[in-house]
Write a protein that binds this DNA or RNA. Structure first.
Length: 468
RNA sequence: CGGGACGUGGCGCAGCUUGGUAGCGCACCCGCUUUGGGAGCGGGGGGUCGCAGGUUCAAAUCCUGUCGUCCCGACCA
């Protein structure tokens, strides 16, 4: 693991790929841009799914499943949408050995096919809101791919809802942004996120407004961690999602869509990783405490098993590694690479004193703890590490954020992090100019940091950065 | 599509300039010794050098063609 995490982006991807490979998280699939997620990587995703799914259901949204293949004609119904996604589509042309009359697109996102069914299911205002989500894989042809951050095939969650009014839809879009996405990312992933609205150039194809949460990586580049779109009545018109209101009149519904993907695993690696590998925040960690033996003996193995049982029954996610045929250093380094928050080493020397060695991945310190107090000590270490990771990331973001007065200043400042620039001093022309220099407007916020209702509000602040 | 590299055991590479029977590290297998921070020693298996043609007594190496991959840019959760 050669490179240090300097704010010079060129070295970083190499370091990133080292972690992905050495921690056995994922590797490339046979087709361009596909990713094979290995069990250690998938465990991270599974934990994200658990935490996210609980939050999604809190909003009243239900899970469902829609087809992988979508007739091409569905895409053509919404003009902006087809234009936006046409270059990214993978298309199925044959089935059963024969050429299909109508080609089928492998879903890049499911607004169109879900819209088709929503139209059938929505008849009355009593059917609203209709709140659906699906966990699935999607495919988008990408010119440049990178494991977890941008792959042709990725796993995600996509929510799709229909509401009675603009206000209801707007409110729900922001509820997802705050209560589901930002809450999960800050409290579980320990990654502070900027919440805001996207410019027209960065908006989802076919949407009225796109809201997003953005995290800053260790190298000062931004990563879009999730988006929530209010689609207005664009898709409702295209797919004829109509209902009869209280007043007896037919009206088009107001729809939203929102998604987060396995990219969050990439954000986790690049947001928290260090020269020794991944660091996983305790609340997310599939393995919170890793119990290992130092040397092989009946006493040591017995004590390790006992510690494992005790920690497990205290409600922690624990892994017991009883191997003694692999060198100690190898096992310790592997545990570090995979980012297990707490490692407990049990050897004859510890046992002689009735102790165990507790190693914190985040703080990197070792301490000896009496066996009887392990459960409390581990719980305390986990809590401290969760907070320490968040604080560290927040401090870094603040340190890497600079105010700018002009587009040129912003481009300069964005070489190392976020540049804050009044949107009035930037505008669409400034945005294009910055983009030519590899810097994009990530989100717009109000002066007080809150999320604007639309791009029309005066006095907005733009956050510019380089991004993945 | 524009610019630049590279194809040699599973992975990462050297060898090519100056042709002479294919080598290193990691990984893997066996044995012994090890195990408190990526073990040591000994032994072993695995490659028609991307593909096709040409030059030559002889081609990984030189020539021609071809296929493919990666990087930078444009596009993007």
């Amino acid at each position: 693991m050669a490179n240090v995490l300097t704010p010079q982006g060129e070295d970083f991807p190499r370091w990133y790929q080292d972690v992905v490979a050495k921690a056995q998280l994922a590797e490339n699939g046979p087709a361009k841009g596909q990713q094979v997620i290995r069990p250690t990587g998938f465990a991270l995703w599974e934990r994200m799914v658990d935490e996210m799914d609980a939050r999604i259901k809190e909003t009243g949204t239900e899970n469902a499943s829609f087809p992988l293949l979508i007739p091409e004609s569905y895409f053509r119904r919404e003009a902006d949408h087809v234009e936006g996604f046409a270059p990214e589509l993978w298309t199925v042309t044959h089935a059963g050995g024969k050429e299909l009359e109508e080609k089928l697109a492998v879903r890049p996102t499911s607004e169109t096919i879900i819209g088709e069914y929503m139209a059938k299911w929505v008849k009355s205002y009593r059917d609203l809101p209709l709140l659906l989500n699906q966990w699935c894989n999607v495919m988008r042809y990408e010119l440049r791919t990178r494991l977890f951050l941008r792959s042709s095939e990725f796993l995600w969650q996509e929510g799709h809802t229909v509401h009675e009014s603009y206000e209801d839809a707007h409110e729900f879009t922001l509820r997802i942004l705050h209560d589901v996405y930002a809450d999960f990312m800050e409290n579980v992933l320990a990654l502070p996120v900027l919440r805001g609205i996207k410019t027209e150039a960065e908006r989802f194809a076919g949407a009225l407004n796109t809201f997003a949460v953005e995290a800053l990586m260790r190298d000062g580049k931004a990563l879009q961690m999730g988006t929530s779109h209010e689609l207005g009545q664009n898709f409702a018109r295209a797919f004829d999602i109509q209902f009869q209101g209280k007043d007896g009149q037919q009206a088009h519904g107001w729809t939203t869509s929102w998604g987060t993907s396995t990219r969050m695993v990439g954000g986790l690696i690049m947001g928290h990783g260090d020269d020794s590998g991944l660091r996983v925040p305790p609340r997310l960690a599939p393995v919170q405490a890793y119990v290992m033996v130092v040397k092989d003996s009946d006493e040591v193995q017995g004590a390790a098993k006992q510690v494992f049982d005790e920690l497990k029954s205290s409600g922690l996610r624990v892994k017991l590694d009883h191997r003694a045929d692999v060198a100690f250093g190898r096992r310790a380094v592997d545990a570090e690479l995979k980012g297990y928050p707490v490692r407990i080493e049990i050897g004859p020397r510890d046992l002689k004193n009735g102790e165990a060695t507790l190693v914190s991945r985040v703080k990197g310190v070792k301490e000896t703890v009496p066996l009887g107090m392990l459960a409390e000590a581990v719980a305390a270490a986990l809590e401290g590490d969760q907070q320490a990771l968040f604080d560290e990331a927040l401090e870094r973001r603040e340190r890497l954020t600079a105010d700018a007065a002009t587009v040129d200043e912003a481009v300069e400042a964005a070489q190392t992090g976020y540049a804050r620039l009044p949107w009035d001093a930037c505008g669409v022309e400034g945005e294009q100019k910055a983009a030519a220099a590899g810097v994009t407007v990530r989100v717009l916020q109000r002066e007080d940091g809150s999320v604007p209702d639309s791009l029309d509000e005066p006095g907005l602040i733009a956050y510019l950065a380089r991004s993945y």
